[in-house]
């Protein structure tokens, strides 16, 4: 799969838009875009676990919660955000590795339920362990980070901070999916038995897929905390995990740009469907069902199929042309 010239140009245009566009946006627009970045990072993590390695997880929201709480607690106590973010990522990496163990034993819906149970348990811990998480009242007054010497209290400055983190992650993510690891993930998804027979240590890769995916959830959470400047248990209830799963599916699971697109739709959706008043969630749910009927690999799945079809048509047309030309020369 080579990047075509079109894709490169499109990526550059989008990158430029993300750099320059927010200067002209209101505080609200910048906040929404920052939220999109946070959700994209979490969805990228889930896309690695689900889209590439084929391991379903309904616990990504819980990892966001762990990341948010760890980094809220650390930054409130004066630690700089990058340290808190790395700590969040590390904690979630370890937790994700552990959550990967059930995946070694069970698959599909069983795995979905194990991870769902994990997410529900995490919510209960956030809510009940008041001595550390602040309980039902949550944690307030979470500071925004400094970049070098500059405070990022303003919406634009913090947006760029988030964008910087996203940039780094997008690069790492690109490298990862093209690395032997990424290919091993795909092999795992397509046919685990075959992958094993090819000498891929499937056990280790399943754990790695869970660990890295979860760590990215932690990073997303550690940006969520200073963005909202408030964390409370309901924010990380099971709903969030379901939402993130839908983002990955809608965008296109297993596609590099899938999580970006899925998160964009989910974050902007209430805005786009504002005219429908109370019906936006219903319409979204309807759209998701329709999409799954048409293409279970999401919007990018449709686009991909369309492009492949066109290429096939062009190729077969070319073949037909050469063939008829050949026929003509024969005559």
């Amino acid at each position: 799969m080579k990047l075509s010239a079109f894709a490169i140009v499109a990526s550059l245009v989008v990158a430029l838009g993300l750099l320059v566009g927010p200067i002209f946006l209101s505080d609200y627009g910048r906040y929404i875009l920052s939220m999109w970045i946070v959700m994209s990072i979490a969805a990228i993590g889930l896309n690695l676990t689900l889209g590439y390695a084929g391991q379903v997880s309904l616990a990504q929201g819980a990892f966001m919660g762990v990341g948010a709480y760890v980094s809220a607690l650390m930054t409130i106590h004066g630690w700089p955000l990058p340290v808190a973010m790395l700590t969040s990522a590390l904690v979630c990496l370890v937790l994700g590795w552990m959550l990967g163990y059930p995946a070694l034993r069970v698959q599909h819906h069983y795995l979905a339920f194990v991870t769902l149970a994990f997410a529900s348990l995490a919510f209960l811990i956030f809510r009940n362990e008041e001595w550390i998480t602040g309980g039902v009242d949550g944690l307030a007054n979470i500071p925004r980070p400094y970049f070098l010497w500059m405070a990022t209290d303003g919406s634009l400055a913090f947006y760029y901070y988030c964008l910087g983190v996203l940039g780094l992650i997008a690069l790492g993510y690109y490298g990862l999916v093209r690395s032997p690891w990424g290919r091993a993930f795909l092999a795992l998804r397509e046919n685990p038995v075959r992958a094993m027979s090819l000498g891929i240590d499937t056990r280790r890769y399943i754990l790695v897929a869970f660990a890295i995916g979860s760590a990215l959830g932690g990073v997303a959470g550690s940006l969520f905390a200073p963005l909202v400047q408030f964390v409370e248990p309901p924010a990380f209830a099971v709903d969030l995990s379901l939402k993130l799963l839908l983002m990955v599916i809608v965008g296109g699971s297993g596609f590099y740009f899938g999580p970006f697109l899925g998160a964009l739709i989910a974050v902007l959706l209430p805005e786009w469907l504002r005219f429908t008043q109370g019906y936006y969630l219903m319409l979204y749910a309807f759209f998701v069902m329709l999409l799954l009927v048409i293409s279970p690999s999401g919007i990018l799945g449709i686009a991909d199929k369309w492009i492949t079809d066109r290429k096939t048509r062009v190729a077969s047309a070319a073949r037909a042309a050469t063939a008829s030309a050949f026929e003509e020369t024969k005559q």
Binding site: S26, Y28, M35, L227, V228, F230, P270, Q277
Partner: peptide
């Protein structure tokens, strides 16, 4: 104009920015 926080503080914050605008 009514806006839905989806019972979440993070969304409420976004909507407050929009409302202020």
């Amino acid at each position: 104009v009514h806006a839905d926080t989806a019972s979440s503080a993070g969304t409420a914050r976004a909507l407050m920015l929009k409302a202020i605008d």
